[in-house]
Design a protein around this nucleic acid. Structure first.
Lengths: 139, 139
DNA sequence: TAATAAGTAATCATAATGGTTACAAATACA
DNA sequence: TGTATTTGTAACCATTATGATTACTTATTA
């Protein structure tokens, strides 16, 4: 990971959740995130596809949560917006003539999938609702 | 993380560990990793600095482990070669006028440092010796 | 002295990332 | 029906990250 899509997506969802009475425009979200609306709309494509949000076109349109904030975990969000969803990358250039080069992927595979699972478990325990609650307290 | 420095470093250390009787040249390592020697030498700067390896110049020089393979964890390696050492990045553009923008870093901070700890714990449990043993079995 | 190997600077190509503009299509509402 | 609003989306740009490569200096061995 070295992009901020996950953090931005969480930000977006938190903003949306603060007022569930109406759809929120990408422009409003963008001004909270500190970027521009087109970028937010691009990110929303992933969230819409994952059925986490749903967008409405036209005047008084915008985006809403597609399901309760309490049912959306950070893991859901991560999976939705991060195509790779991989914490670590292994170089694809290893020399198969060498016993290490031939096995490096398998050697690291176990550890890396363990870390992957741990992270998914942690992210799976926190929901957007939890974050919204903190914002409401912090103000 | 989206670079392969960690995986390459583990690869390098495993190669070195397979023959501890002599220093291994960056050229030999490079041919196993599938890259060139200068890049390996650059990576070795970090491992040398962390006292994980030590290099010897000149004819019949090369690089050796600076301490037993059984004492080098993957966490040590990660910390040595990955400056950031951060799994997730948060966008730095948030609007402080917005309650979400103002708090997003704190909101995510807790979760992200949890995942960070989990990962460090998992990586801390596997040593280079463990990986070498697997190579010796797998061949 | 010749050969070898690390240290390191400089440069390049490619890809990833994020920012920006622009416009068509859809929708609400006067 | 017409106008304003908003998403969907393409196109493009700038910057940075990443990895590859060359080349040279310094150190060391034999």
């Amino acid at each position: 990971m070295s992009n901020t899509r996950f953090a931005v997506a969480v930000h977006v969802l938190t903003v949306i959740s603060l007022d569930e009475t109406r759809p929120i425009s990408s422009q409003l979200i963008a001004s909270s995130v500190g970027t521009n609306a087109a970028l937010i709309r691009r990110l929303l494509i992933s969230l819409n596809d994952a059925k986490i949000t749903s967008s409405e076109r036209g005047a008084s349109g915008g985006v809403r949560l597609a399901r309760p904030a309490s049912s959306i975990t950070l893991f859901d969000v991560w999976r939705a917006v991060d195509e790779e969803g991989q914490l670590f990358r292994v170089h694809p250039t290893s020399n198969p003539q060498c016993p290490v080069g031939r096995n490096i992927e398998g050697l690291l595979g176990g550890v890396l999938s363990s870390t992957q699972c741990m992270v998914e478990a942690v992210l799976g325990k926190v929901t957007i609702r939890d974050l919204v609650a903190k914002v409401e307290i912090a103000g």
